[in-house]
Design a protein around this nucleic acid. Structure first.
Length: 846
RNA sequence: GCCCGGGUGGCGGAAUGGCAGACGCUGAGGACUUAAAAUCCUCCGAGGAUUUUUCCUCAUGAGGGUUCGACUCCCUCCCCGGGCACCA
């Protein structure tokens, strides 16, 4: 016999990931394995990981995201899909500019350096991207289309300018979006820096135009997006149905009326005050008639100040003061006092409320503190009658009550009353039903250099004018003065600012604001479909083939902003006629973070595990395998340097196994053998491998349980080892079948190793055209099964029977089993539960 | 406060109503080796009975419920993580 028959693979493993990985990456590039084109004759699959912001070192947290995406891409390719799997760079943004200021260099140099580094690492890991489609958002070829879209929005009134109070971070020296202000008043990038307020002219995009669609279309995402992300978006949009009602101000000529917003117009007869937000424009005006105007104005001024800086709104004490004026309730002409209250927000609703203490907890607290009267207008249908004086907890139920003290509306249910009273207000002209939203328009202006210039010019004669399409892109000046202080860099670059008016040709001034980088990421995935188009942002035919994105993968951190803006952008593009779909992303997966020491990896915490280091130490395949194995993909993963050794050992084990048998199976024709003639040992092996294949397939396809898929493959490998020496009793063709399936199952996760093994098994052509194997039902079938026997629900024994054995036979065998007999003898069997091939439960009494 | 997740050995985790702890890490023992590394094999939730082979009890944050049977479904509570928050 030419073959060795020792089971010991004691020789040093020949597995050399550095060599293997370089070899196959080169092959893949040469053969253009991952390049794909739109082809309507083929089923498509668009899988995408959120594009990275290239900064710092690429760590294993990044890597996990891409490893998950790459498994999906590779599985889908093996499943016969035409797969689009691109990658690019979110290349504009503050860190580049800050770094440039610090190092006295250009943001482009810093950015391009980082991109080169990131790209090198991604290539080192062998992710199956179509690199021809790579985009970088800081290139004029990309951002000119930001400008193009902006102009389209400007034409349609979706982009506009307004003076607005903005959040100003003294450290960033820039305006922050509301959502970039965290922890009740701090900068999202500088958690120790308190945000200030300033009033500036800003550019906005009218996201609120699409409030309803953004909300309603969430229904289309159900099943495809995580429930909690849908919920977060719902809350963010914050739709609230109610009514606006005008209260006249008694005896004040120039003031009022005050418009309030309420969702409970049915309680309006119980209103005992009107309360204004400190920032309400009428508040100051009304004070003019106050008995002590100076004192009241001082209180107002103080309240206005503190309301901006509130750290902890929830625990803040409710405060307020009487303005000295009265409002008239349009329903019963009652005069009620007008107060200013610190718990009323100018940004929400109308900035004014009616206080109904009996039926709103906050109002109750406020009114009790200031001894305002409490009047019950809704009595519960069951239970004790409420009295205003004794009320401790507001009765805010609207289901089980009926109206009282409400004039003609007495006796109605709150539901009926809301409809009738809204209609009454409309008829009388003092109010109307209205729906309000928490969602704000999107402020996109940034007073920074490293972003897309907003393509607008200002002419003394012709006013504000859009830059004509033919003059796009408006490119950033190559040599800005970046100081990080004072006015924005573009404003202090004369060669950029000074231009000519597109209408009169006279001198004009350019807009110097640049766009929020969320603009870049709102539509980049469309550009991947047609990345080099210089006539349009993309060809609609290509996009309509690839879209929607079948699978988007990224962190939960982007659950609101990035995804909401992307959805908004899609709807705008649809209304421009560029795309046909309502939603860009069919399925979303939010993967967990990689942590070290219980916290997410970040440069500032100094706990990053560099991806490149890992590739050097263990190879890309081990790194990929470990991030997939250590935890299910949606959960956070604690990095363990000890545990990754296990993945390394496993891959070596597989390598040695196949290396040992490669000579014997190389010349054999794979997949062809006489299954009927299989020996016992062969049958056991074939059964195991096909059972594994069945379960791994389902873990990949429907459950995304990569960790348990890997566990199954490990188990299979252990099983094969246990059957060594395979030379004894396992024909080469059966060995080949087993080892090939093992290799194929590993291919999506450890593609380099799989290619190498595939070659060792005698395939010269590479895995490019190889399909995902189908499991063989016949071979997977067990002919003998072990049945668990319980007595009254407790396991007392197990019996071996041929698969499919009937109840009677199993009961007979079970009762012969010592452990079972011990617990069942002398007792009456009152019930038998029998699950074929699995379990028998004998319920006994006595 | 409200809304989502989650709580299983020393650790990461498996099990979607049917043998709790698969697989991996750590640890212990053995084989190989002059030795070490690597590799291969065995054991590894707790307690008790039985000197060996084995058997029993307890155990998936706590308590209750549904069920022949619950990590899994239902109710109450505790703890951890995340999101939202005077939203009228």
């Amino acid at each position: 016999m030419a073959e060795q028959t020792t089971t010991s693979a004691g020789t040093a493993s020949g597995y050399d990931p550095q060599k293997i990985e370089a070899k196959w990456q080169k092959r893949w590039a040469e053969e253009r394995m991952f390049e794909s084109e739109a082809d309507p004759s083929k089923p498509k699959y668009y899988v995408l990981e959120m594009l990275p912001y290239p900064s710092g070192t690429m760590h294993m947290g990044h890597m996990r995201n891409y490893a998950i995406g790459d498994v999906v891409a590779r599985v889908k390719r093996m499943r016969g899909f035409n797969v689009l799997h691109p990658m690019g760079w979110d290349a504009f943004g503050l860190p580049a500019e800050n770094a440039a200021i610090k190092n006295k260099t250009h943001p482009r140099i810093w950015t391009n350096h980082n991109i080169a580094q990131f790209q090198r690492v991604l290539r080192r890991f062998g992710f199956s991207y179509d690199w021809r489609r790579e985009i970088s958002t800081c290139e004029p070829g990309y951002y000119r289309w930001n400008q193009w879209f902006f102009l389209r929005m400007l034409e349609r009134g979706l982009a506009y300018r307004k003076k607005s109070l903005v959040n100003w971070c003294p450290k960033c020296q820039t305006v922050l979006a509301n959502e970039q202000v965290i922890n009740g008043g701090f900068c999202w990038r500088h958690e120790d820096t308190r945000v200030e307020s300033r009033e500036i002219e800003q550019w906005f995009l009218r996201t609120t135009t699409y409030s309803d669609q953004l909300l309603d279309d969430l229904k289309q995402l159900e099943g495809g997006w995580p429930e909690r992300v849908i919920l977060m978006q719902k809350n963010w949009i914050g739709k609230s149905q109610g009514a606006k009602v005008k209260f006249a101000v008694a005896g004040a000529a120039g003031a009022g009326p005050i418009e309030i917003f309420t969702t409970r117009i049915d309680t309006i007869y119980g209103a005992t005050a009107v309360i204004l937000a400190p920032a309400h424009p009428l508040a100051a005006k009304l004070l003019e008639g106050s008995p002590a105007p100076a004192e009241a104005e001082a209180r107002l001024a103080k309240m206005r100040q503190t309301s901006v800086k509130t750290e902890d709104l929830a625990t803040m004490e409710k405060e307020g003061f009487f303005t000295g004026r009265y409002a008239v309730n349009p329903f019963n002409d009652e005069k009620i006092p007008i107060w200013v209250g610190n718990f009323v927000l100018m940004e929400y609703g109308t900035g004014a409320i009616m206080a109904v203490p009996a039926h709103d907890q906050r109002d109750l607290e406020f009114c009790k503190k200031y001894k305002l009267s409490v009047r019950v207008v809704i009595q519960p249908l069951v239970g004790e009658e409420l009295s205003g004086e004794k009320l401790e907890t507001a009765f805010d139920e609207h289901l089980h009550g009926k109206l009282v003290n409400s004039g003609p509306f007495n006796g109605l249910s709150p539901e009926e009353a809301i409809a009738k009273m809204t209609a009454f207000a409309e008829q009388k002209g003092c109010g109307r039903g209205e729906t309000i939203y928490r969602l704000r328009d999107w402020g996109i202006s940034r007073q920074r250099y490293w972003g897309t210039p907003i393509p607008v010019v200002y002419c003394a004669k012709d006013g504000m004018l859009p830059v004509p399409d033919k003059d796009l892109p408006v490119v950033l000046p190559p040599n800005p003065k970046l100081t990080g202080e004072g006015q924005s860099p573009l404003a202090s670059t004369p060669e950029f600012v000074n231009t000519t008016c597109p209408k009169c040709g006279g001198p004009a001034r350019r807009e110097t604001d640049t766009m929020d980088t969320f603009v870049d990421s709102s539509w980049y995935f469309y550009r991947y479909c047609d990345p080099h188009n210089d006539k349009a942002p993309f060809d609609s035919a290509k996009v309509s083939y690839w879209f929607p994105i079948d699978q988007y993968i990224g962190g939960i951190t982007h659950a609101i902003l990035h995804l909401l803006y992307s959805r908004f952008w899609c709807k705008v593009m649809r209304d421009l006629g560029l795309v046909k779909h309502d939603e860009p992303i069919a399925r979303l997966f939010t993967q967990g973070m990689v942590q070290k020491g219980g916290v997410a990896m970040s440069k500032s915490r100094g706990n990053v595990v560099g991806a490149e280091e890992m590739a050097q130490k263990y190879g890309a395949d081990t790194g990929r395998l470990y991030t997939l194995f250590a935890a299910p993909p949606e959960k956070d993963l604690e990095w363990s340097e000890e545990s990754i050794e296990g993945s390394w050992r496993f891959l070596n084990r597989v390598y040695r196994l196949i290396e040992r048998h490669s000579q014997a199976v190389r010349g054999v024709k794979g997949g062809k053998f006489d299954a009927a003639a299989a020996s016992r040992k062969e049958k056991a092996l074939l059964r195991k491998v096909h059972q594994t294949l069945r379960r791994v397939t389902s873990d990949f396809e429907s459950r995304w349980h990569f960790n348990s898929a890997i566990a199954l493959i490990m188990e299979l490998t252990n099983d094969v080892y246990a059957q060594e020496p395979l030379e004894q009793g396992v024909r080469p063709e059966v060995r080949k079948e087993v080892l090939e399936l093992l290799t194929l199952m590993l291919a999506p996760m450890t593609p380099h190793l799989a290619e190498e093994l595939w070659e060792m098994l005698g395939h010269g052509e590479g895995m490019g055209k190889v399909s995902w194997p189908t499991f063989n039902q016949e071979l997977a079938r067990e002919d003998e099964v072990e049945i668990v026997v319980q007595v009254s629900g407790r396991v007392r024994g197990r019996v071996k029977v041929s698969a499919g054995a009937g109840e009677e036979e199993v009961v007979k065998l079970a009762l012969a089993e010592a452990g079972v007999a011990h617990h069942a003898d002398g007792k009456r069997i009152v019930k038998k539960i029998f699950v074929r091939d699995k379990l028998l439960n004998l319920v006994v009494s006595g």
